[in-house]
């Protein structure tokens, strides 16, 4: 790990405007990432974890206009407000992506060898022949058996785990410095998940790559991430080293999330622990702490003012909680 962060996100706020509605899925997010480091972004559906990572790179669904403010510095280049050309030159080259569902990310009508070679050719500026050789290397690197035969197969001929390996091969074809992995193992079985996570770690170590891992699975966070950022309603609830946040969570939401995970010492047939109430519906920015209606520790005043992210008793951990901050 070098001292200089490769990615500096500061006060990132994103408003999404469709024909009918305006919502703020990302509200003042800040974090930094160094080479070789993995940051897990954890949150439930609608917490803004995916938009946080993709909107600044110009990756948004069609028909949605994203109004992005704040700053996202990647290797000194400002991405917020950058033109499409700048973003395009980064996407797939210096910044690689892995999506949750490999089947919808791959072209069903092209052989996987072509799909990998295409990326190598485009971003590395090499000849088609060299790109093919590179594709073969990559297929080997992601641990696929019988690499020569695999190159000629189509995505539908592969299992979910193998498809995700192809996605990883494509994402690292141009040796990116940052890999954004959005729920890379959610669609996979546990046995395959273990293999894919191990592969990602090996590749990351070999290429000294920084990784943003978007997930909702605390088990995945525990094994793969150096630091974790917990999001709730588009805001940072808590951020800190994995071994601190997962073992001794401070924000009531993080506490609830971790408490909700079934444990080995829970009695068979015992009741499940969870959070009461419902996550907020995306809409206009919430006035006070967004977690107040579900919070066991809330006091009068929690709903009045938005709590800032502050250092907790442990200087490595920051949390945004009016009760903790007080």
């Amino acid at each position: 790990m070098t001292a200089e962060p490769i990615l500096i996100v500061k006060d990132l706020t994103i408003d999404l405007l469709t024909a009918h509605t305006a919502v703020r899925p990302v509200d003042s997010i800040s974090y930094q990432l160094r080479r070789g480091e993995t940051l897990a972004i954890v949150g439930e559906s609608g917490s803004g974890k995916t938009v946080t990572c993709f909107a600044p790179l110009g990756l948004m669904p069609v028909g949605v206009k994203a109004d992005v403010s704040g700053s996202v510095l990647f290797e000194g280049t400002e991405l917020v407000g950058a033109n499409e050309e700048t973003l395009r030159s980064l996407r797939g080259k210096s910044i690689g992506f892995i999506f949750q569902d490999p089947m919808s990310a791959l072209n069903p009508a092209r052989r996987i060898g072509h799909q990998i070679a295409e990326v190598a050719e485009l971003h590395l500026g090499i000849t088609p022949r060299a790109a093919e050789a590179r594709a073969l290397d990559l297929i080997k690197m992601v641990g696929m058996s019988d690499p020569n035969a695999r190159l000629k197969q189509y995505p539908h001929e592969l299992s979910g785990g193998l498809r995700q390996r192809v996605m990883i091969a494509i994402s690292i074809a141009a040796e990116p410095k940052l890999l954004v992995a959005d729920e890379p193992t959610t669609a996979l079985d546990v046995t395959v998940q273990a293999q894919i996570l191990r592969l990602l770690k090996e590749i990351q170590a070999r290429m000294d790559m920084a990784m943003v891992l978007i997930t909702h699975d605390m088990g995945v966070v525990a094994g793969a991430a150096d630091r974790v950022l917990v999001m709730y309603a588009g805001r940072q609830a808590e951020v800190g080293p994995t071994e601190k946040v997962l073992v001794a969570p401070r924000h009531p939401y993080t506490m609830g999330l971790i408490d909700a995970i079934p444990r080995r010492d829970d009695a068979i047939g015992s009741r499940f622990r969870g959070l009461s109430g419902l996550p907020p519906i995306l809409g206009a920015p919430i006035k006070g702490c967004a977690f107040t209606p579900r919070c066991r520790h809330s006091v009068e005043g929690c709903g009045a003012q938005r709590p800032p992210l502050r250092t907790t008793a442990d200087p490595a951990v920051m949390a945004a909680c009016p009760v903790l901050n007080a």
Binding site: V190, T191, D217, M218
Partner: peptide, 8 residues
């Protein structure tokens, strides 16, 4: 294969 949520 099931990961544990405790990093230790």
């Amino acid at each position: 294969s099931v990961p544990e949520a405790d990093p230790m």
